[in-house]
């Protein structure tokens, strides 16, 4: 150990731990994510958001699909569900509807949520299902070795686009907006304070809420395309991002290493699926209907 470390350790109070540790399953750390991967940073921000939210963590559940980001559920010290590929949102829908007091968060990747799981995203947003969806977008399939994703910009090489990608990628905030999400924002993992704040804000809102988090995949995206390491991608985020709150989501599509528009794009109120159901049946059946999932007349 170095001198500086020795000196430093001398000043460390053993009772003082990293403030995010209580939010993690410490017996599962270190995690599987590569050096320079940003998923951990997003989780770090999420822990701060949970901490600042004041929520009863026994009533927060996290649902993930499959993939690198899909492993998030397994690291958070919450009721956590690691489901099948693409199906985190319908699982979360069932969880929320059967136990409405839960604050349900879906935490998954771009391939999981928008390729194999795309249909579920559209419909949960359309229904205004009361869940928060956090999508860590690293523009590739990491867990399987760097294949083209529905978010991969035109240009970069992926193992299944060996001569560069020629498919048009999704503009995720635009999809979320068009499908009816009540809250849509995008940040990169350079924007840690804004991201943690957005997560906290979204945790406190109702309805289908969506946060896109741009995050580097150094192993299978950046290095393969000679974009450097994770930290180089984050530097790119720093240089090329502009904050445009409230901008039309049509305008926020991403090009290869181009300008990145970040910010809060949508923040609106719509009745959630359960609120609509209860309101509709209360109207239809009158007093004979007992509103579902509502305790003591409040929800």
């Amino acid at each position: 150990m170095s001198e500086s470390l020795d000196l430093h350790l001398a000043s460390v109070e053993t009772s003082l731990d990293n403030p995010v540790l209580p939010f993690l399953r410490q017996d599962r750390i270190p995690h599987i994510w590569c050096p320079g991967c940003g998923i951990g940073t997003s989780v770090n921000c999420f822990c701060r958001a949970l901490s600042d939210s004041g929520l009863d963590l026994d009533k927060v559940a996290i649902v993930s699909g499959i993939g690198c980001t899909g492993r998030t559920a397994g690291y958070l010290n919450l009721d956590s569900f690691h489901t099948t590929h693409g199906r985190a949102i319908p699982f979360a829908t069932g969880l929320k509807l059967s136990n409405p007091e839960l604050n349900v968060v879906v935490y998954s990747g771009d391939g999981d949520l928008f390729a194999i799981g795309g249909n579920h995203f559209f419909h949960a947003a359309r229904r205004n299902m009361d869940i928060l969806v956090i999508c860590v977008n690293n523009f590739t399939y990491g867990m399987t070795g760097g294949q083209v994703a529905p978010t991969t910009p035109v240009g970069p090489t992926q193992t299944t686009m060996p001569y560069g990608n020629f498919e048009n990628p999704f503009n995720l905030p635009f999809i979320a907006d068009a499908c009816g999400a009540t809250y849509v924002s995008r940040w990169t993992i350079y924007h840690v304070r804004q991201l943690a704040k957005a997560m906290k804000e979204a945790l406190g809102k109702k309805g289908f809420r969506f946060i896109e988090v741009m995050s580097p995949c150094p192993t299978l995206y950046s290095r393969r395309n000679r974009l450097g390491d994770g930290v180089d991608q984050v530097k790119y985020y720093k240089e090329k991002s502009v904050i445009k709150n409230g901008v039309d989501t049509k305008e926020v599509g991403l090009g290869y290493q181009g300008e990145i528009v970040v910010g809060k794009f949508v923040d609106r109120e719509r009745p959630t699926w359960l609120e609509s159901m209860n309101a509709h049946y209360s109207h239809h059946f009158g007093d004979a209907f007992q509103p579902y999932g509502v305790k003591n007349g409040q929800d």
Partner: peptide
């Protein structure tokens, strides 16, 4: 609650979310 999902993939996993709820 009854919910008509978008497909059987969704229906068969939504029920499992329902169980854990």
């Amino acid at each position: 609650v009854f919910i008509q999902m978008e497909d059987e993939l969704a229906a068969s996993i939504a029920i499992q979310g329902g169980v854990w709820g």
